[in-house]
């Protein structure tokens, strides 16, 4: 005589997976002879049938909507993080030896950020330029590295051979200039006046040594600063940042591919904003080390 445990295991299998004909007969015989097991089996069957028969409830529509909204929100957060990242990957120029190579590196740095800006807005029917910018960002990074290494001979051996050529390619592609690589620093900020009509020749009224930043400031009037708070509100989930509009300090702008990329920081330097044309981007703290380098470089004398 088999024990109850055996029959209980058989009951479970009967409910779930089926049993052989022989096992079924065995179980039936036992249930006839054992009221306790028969009662247990009828209870187990009822419970199981009841659970399985219960209609599946229709999930509310907000289930899928909520999931997709949350995913979209997270994706936007990631976009901002991604925008910041290229800047962090770029090697900083050595500040003690700031020179034209340093400026070239800064130009690349800016371009890399600008590429991020374009990438961010790739959803806005800018697929072609974005692709180009992404490629260029890679080249620009190589160029930045090259620029840094050129200052430090002991590192020079590590420089990829293709880097100088890549740098030229990147700069001509990005800035739309066909000059030699030596002219690349001229593309920083508003110094590339040939391609962009300057509003007024007010440059001469700026006292002291003229800096890239000074020149850039001449152009601040062209920038639709009113757009910034609204965009900030969009990125911050609907909260307009207090005093954003008046607290933004314009830093400078650069130009590539007929697009002007401008930079500003808030008063506390806790956020960096840059924008191309009418599309500003806010960056959160974390990018400010890079920002200070940029500002330093922007204060460099304008090349003659």
């Amino acid at each position: 005589m088999r024990d109850h445990e055996y029959y209980q295991e058989l009951m479970s299998r009967l409910l779930d997976e089926g049993v052989t004909a022989e096992e079924e007969k065995d179980l039936k015989d036992h249930l006839r002879a054992c009221p306790a097991c028969a009662a247990l089996f009828s209870a187990l069957s009822a419970v199981t049938v009841s659970l399985r028969e219960e209609d599946m409830a229709d999930p509310p529509a907000e289930l899928a909507q909520g999931v997709m909204a949350r995913i979209a929100a997270e994706k936007n957060e990631h976009k901002v993080i991604h925008v910041q990242r290229p800047e962090l990957e770029v090697q900083r120029p050595r500040r003690k030896k700031r020179s034209w190579t340093g400026i070239a590196a800064a130009a690349c740095l800016v371009v890399v950020i600008g590429s991020g800006a374009l990438w961010f807005f790739s959803g806005r029917d800018k697929s072609a330029p974005t692709e180009g910018a992404a490629d260029s960002a890679v080249y620009a990074r190589a160029a930045a590295q090259d620029a840094t290494e050129a200052e430090v001979p002991e590192d020079a051996g590590a420089a990829p051979e293709a880097a100088p050529a890549a740098g030229e390619t990147a700069e001509s592609a990005l800035f739309g200039v066909e000059e030699e690589a030596a002219d690349a620093p001229m593309t920083v900020a508003a110094a590339d006046s040939a391609a962009v009509p300057m509003p007024e020749p007010t440059v001469t009224t700026v006292p002291g040594p003229l800096t890239v930043r000074d020149v850039a400031r001449q152009k601040v009037g062209e920038i639709p600063v009113e757009d910034i708070p609204a965009f900030a509100a969009f990125l911050e989930g609907g909260t307009v940042l207090g005093g954003a509009q008046k607290d933004w300090e314009f830093l400078f702008s650069v130009e590539y591919n007929d697009t002007e990329v401008s930079f500003a920081t808030d008063e506390a330097e806790s956020r960096l904003v840059w924008w191309d044309s009418n599309t500003p981007i806010i960056a959160s703290p974390g990018s400010l080390d890079g920002l200070r380098d940029l500002v330093d470089l922007a204060d460099s004398p304008v090349p003659q």
């Binding site: 009967l14 409910l15 079924e24 009662a39 009828s42 069957s45 009822a46 399985r52």
Partner: peptide
């Protein structure tokens, strides 16, 4: 109160 023991198999979805 449990229903009477059934000799029929209880299959998923049936019942």
């Amino acid at each position: 109160s449990p229903p009477a023991p059934s000799n029929e198999r209880t299959k998923k979805g049936g019942g």
